[in-house]
């Protein structure tokens, strides 16, 4: 395996310092978070950084904070493993913790960060669909101040986001959800571990308790379009309706029509479309059936209704 060409590594102590450093030293620099994408790009894809700015010594960038209004702020340098094991996230959004647990191995998740994962904008990123159904926003530090944008508008193509060179993603913000919000994430992949999603489907529903009517429906798809997307045409089909298997089937078909998958080594586009249909339906029915307390994530994953 190829070794990195020489470059300097700098460890600034604050976000302004990091941005200033980047501005002064000019093009060819790369920000380093967990390194599970950057170091692989250096070793496998011939990336030669002129210098690397490591963000890990910036205290304000990590940690998970819950505000009194119910919103959740996740520092960009929070690792996938921290999200997977966070008691707050496991309690509030178990499907988000599960989506983080589906990434790579424990070794990878101890390094990989949620901010790095979003900034790399891989279409198959597991946490992206889960964050999309939570209407998550990202906070970006750039010259002239901060910018807050919906995650849905953050991705613009495979590996491409609205961030410009020198911008730093600082936080993921999850706005409050209604108390009866239920989410579900299904990673569809023939291997249980250590593989990318062939298809990722997240759903979030708010079900009116007494009449079992959907007051809010959110569906997000991963690995089947140039970016992770919301299935905006499929969602309204279920609004103010009860979740029944036949309706879930129709919503799944619509979501399948909406996505634009490619054929690659993992799967053909047609198969991906079919799996979007099946797994959207399954995710909706799982969400409607509700949470089962203390279910391990593998049990959650294997749950079928």
């Amino acid at each position: 395996m190829k070794r990195p060409e020489p470059f300097e590594v700098f460890q600034p102590a604050s976000v302004p310092e990091a941005r200033e450093f980047f501005r002064k030293n000019g093009p060819g620099g790369h920000f380093l978070a967990g390194g599970t994408d950057l170091v692989i790009a250096i070793k496998e894809k011939g990336l030669v950084p002129r210098y690397v700015v490591d963000l890990k010594k910036i205290p304000s960038l990590s940690g998970i904070r819950e505000s009194c209004d119910g919103s959740l702020t996740i520092g960009a340098l929070t690792t996938m493993r921290e999200i997977e094991t966070s008691s707050v996230i496991r309690k509030k959004y178990p499907f988000l913790a599960q989506s983080a647990a589906e990434v790579g191995s424990i070794q990878i998740r101890n390094r990989a960060t949620i901010g790095g994962n979003m900034a790399n904008a891989t279409p198959s990123a597991d946490v992206a669909p889960a964050l999309l159904v939570l209407n998550a926003k990202v906070k970006i530090s750039r010259s002239g101040g901060e910018k807050i944008v919906l995650l849905e508008e953050f991705f613009i193509g495979p590996g491409k986001t609205i961030m410009e060179p020198g911008d730093i993603l600082t936080e993921i913000v999850i706005p409050p959800t209604p108390p009866d919000f239920r989410g579900e994430y299904i990673k569809f992949s023939p291997r249980e571990m250590m593989d990318l999603a062939y298809v990722g489907v997240a759903v979030g529903v708010v079900v009116d308790g007494s009449r079992k009517i959907c007051r809010d429906v959110r569906i997000a798809l991963g690995a089947v379009s140039p970016t992770p997307i919301r299935a905006r045409k499929a969602e309204p089909l279920m609004l103010n309706q009860g979740i029944t298997p036949s309706l879930a089937e129709r919503v799944g078909e619509e979501a399948s029509n909406e996505c634009k998958p490619i054929s690659d080594v993992r799967s053909s586009a047609a198969y991906r479309k079919e799996m979007v249909r099946v797994n959207t339906k399954r995710a909706l029915l799982n969400a409607a059936a509700g949470y089962v307390e203390n279910l391990s994530w593998t049990a959650r994953r294997d749950r079928r209704y």
Partner: peptide, 23 residues
């Protein structure tokens, strides 16, 4: 060498990581 196999696992600050991906 790409973080897939775990042969290079060491404990970094008490946590297992792939040493092939750490600078």
């Amino acid at each position: 060498g790409t973080g897939d196999c775990g042969a290079c696992t060491v404990l970094l600050n008490g946590k297992p990581v792939n040493s092939c991906l750490v600078l």
